[in-house]
Amino acid sequence: MSRINDVGGMAGFPAIVEEPDEPPFHADWEAHVLALNGALIKRGVYNLDEFRDAQERLPVQQYLGASYYERWFAAISTLLVEKGVATADELAVDDHGA
């Protein structure tokens, strides 16, 4: 079924906003997510298409409410569980212990 990433020709999104002098990343963790994903793909934990697929399978409200790299991190977390690398409990961090 058509997925939320497939937006070509859709109406209803907000205006296009340009950010002058935009930095490569808006926070350190974004760079970490990008590097983490590259490392896991290089090791063959999953491939790029599985990574895209995992983003596309996010619940629509979560997908649209998340920032670009939040989506990436959600997809990485999904795949780590599905590939048996870690359980969801192991991936979760205790808010107060962080």
Partner: peptide, 9 residues
Amino acid sequence: AGHTRLPRY
């Protein structure tokens, strides 16, 4: 049903 690279439009 799954991932594809043929856009809906």
